[in-house]
Design a protein around this nucleic acid. Structure first.
Lengths: 335, 335
DNA sequence: ATCACTTTAGAAAACGTTTACGTTACTTAA
DNA sequence: TTAAGTAACGTAAACGTTTTCTAAAGTGAT
């Protein structure tokens, strides 16, 4: 078995209280005893039992993270950011894959409660009444990242989707495009769907371009698969389009693939701008111009906020993260 | 505070032992008391404290996972597989990002030990003497995934890299190619580097094609960035190459980007085959033919094995996972 | 030498469970 | 009825820490 604090106490001829004090850098011991104890610790290869600590301290130094899909490039960047600061500040993270539909959500929430995690980070999914209720009962800090809740007062870290979409479309307009289509993702999605089309519409309007239902095509989700066949559909609805704004990089790449199949050259014949700035954006051929959400930084910040709430006990302000456009090679200037 | 087992015992007028028995579905109570207790549990919203359980049971129902880079598409697929089975079998996972160079490895190993995880899964990194020693001291099951150790007897789950590379190159040869180049990744890497070039050489040899140093170019790693500029270099060394085998999908896509820049059409003028079958392989333009490692399944299997070791207490056999080629559009038949 | 502090240290309770052991009450067979 | 066996439950120890409380020993100052 692993040596316990008792073993080192015995070996160093002190009480366990003293060992504990030394371990926690409190005071109440002389320099010599400290040395003796440290020696005993080293000799035994003693490592404190975090479980026992957790029991008495009511702190597990662990935070739970919920992702609809752990394996997406989107999630994994956020994850990396969270991991980075959490571990730097002495916390581990347990990750839960809730599934796109969130069907495993409640099960995981319970699990995290039983494990007595110190806080929870919630990614890109909408908070239902039920989730909120159990979150509330757990009485631990929660922060949302890449999502927000209109109904419940939970701090979040995200970009302003409407504004970001507005920027992307304005960029296209500045490049001389007037006939701009959109591949929108799920328009019923209140977080990533509707706001982006609103931004699109607003940009059009503010630049004196009239909106046309036919210039927009929506998909059930934001993945590459979801985007397949959408460009042809869009182009059939409205053939004079010169540029398209895709609501995600995966949708954009999907459109690029379709364009390739159709013999349409990007950007010579059609400009495309994406949204997210995932790794595939750089890797696309040609490299995809896109609206960057700084996912890694958002992950870091959300963890910072959560840990701040943990130490201060206070709640914290939400953060709107600045977005920006990464110019690569899929948007051409026209006149 | 959260209600404890004592609270429910009091409320149901039984001892905590009885509550515990009911909770754990042991026997030693009547149907009526069970009902009373269950009611009390519901009313109080009681949820057992997993850390107290962990202390007494010496089992935390948690496993630790070490990744060089959590955010890579490679890791995240494995992660998803592990998560899936671990949670289905009642375990949570804590993920650790050790950094490419493994500099945080020892810190994390200690952490996982202090947290008393029940087992560890180790991904794509080589096991040093030091790692092995501390792993050994922890006395918990370990399984390697997408890597293996020549020096230490640790069970692993991976494809046979040499054989897989052999298959990929043979495929190219079957398609009529004779002048086949390779972008190899790090040739000093004993796991993912050298075996793949050995497979490449062997395939050439077995098909009566002589090997030429100039047909191979190596990179410090397997990422997109690492691959940049490698195709031009390769083509300068040996201009008559008609096909290239890239040691990873990212390297392959990198080559495709370079080819695009150089005005070389894939696959008409140059065939490319990748390795891994990441999401980008489907998303590439044109879609990348590649040698698939079933990462998700490998993740699942590794978790299965680990949990089996946990329940049986026995060690387990390593598994070589079958690989196969996914034919897409980057390899052309020549004659 | 005495007094008043301060520092060093130990004993024991507490955290929320599981479980070995003991006790009581209930069956069943004779 | 009684003895023996079993089912239903309770008591208390244990898991490995932290922390409160208390006691002993040092340290100056007088």
């Amino acid at each position: 078995m692993n040596p316990t604090i008792k073993d080192v106490a015995k070996k160093a001829n002190v009480s366990i209280a003293t060992v504990s004090r030394i371990l926690n850098e409190q005071k109440g011991y002389s320099a010599k005893t400290k040395e003796r104890v440290l020696e005993a610790i080293k000799e035994l290869g003693y490592q404190p039992n975090a479980v026992a600590r957790g029991l008495i301290n009511k702190r597990t130094q662990t935070i739970g993270i919920l992702f609809p899909d752990v394996s997406s490039m989107f999630s994994s960047n956020i994850l990396k950011g969270i991991e980075e600061v959490a571990h730097n500040r002495g916390h581990s993270i347990v990750v839960c894959h809730t599934g796109e539909s969130g069907n495993r959500m409640m099960k995981y929430l319970q699990l995290l409660n039983e494990k007595r995690v110190d806080g929870i980070i919630f990614t890109s999914a909408v908070i239902t009444e039920e989730y909120y209720k159990t979150l509330k009962e757990m009485k631990i800090p929660v922060v949302l990242v890449a999502t927000q809740s209109y109904r419940f007062p939970l701090p979040y870290v995200k970009v302003d989707d409407k504004h970001a979409a507005y920027s992307a479309v304005s960029y296209l307009i500045e490049k001389g495009h007037r006939e701009i289509g959109m591949i929108s993702g799920d328009m019923a999605d209140e977080i990533a769907g509707r706001p982006r089309v609103e931004g699109y519409k607003q940009a059009l309007e503010d630049h004196g371009i009239s909106f046309d239902e036919k210039k927009i095509v929506s998909t059930p989700g934001f993945s590459f698969e979801n985007g397949s066949g959408m460009l042809p559909k869009l182009l059939k609805q409205k053939k004079d389009i010169t540029a398209v704004f895709a609501a995600s990089d995966e949708l954009a790449v999907s459109a690029m693939s379709d364009a390739f199949e159709m013999g349409i050259h990007v950007p010579e014949e059609l400009s495309i701008i994406g949204y997210d700035n995932l790794k595939i954006a750089e890797m696309a051929i040609p490299p995809l111009t896109t609206l960057a959400q700084p996912l890694y930084e958002m992950g870091k910040l959300s963890a910072e906020l959560l840990l701040d709430m943990l130490v201060t006990g206070n709640t914290v302000e939400s953060r709107i993260i600045p977005h920006h456009i990464i110019e690569r090679k899929t948007v051409k200037k026209v006149n």
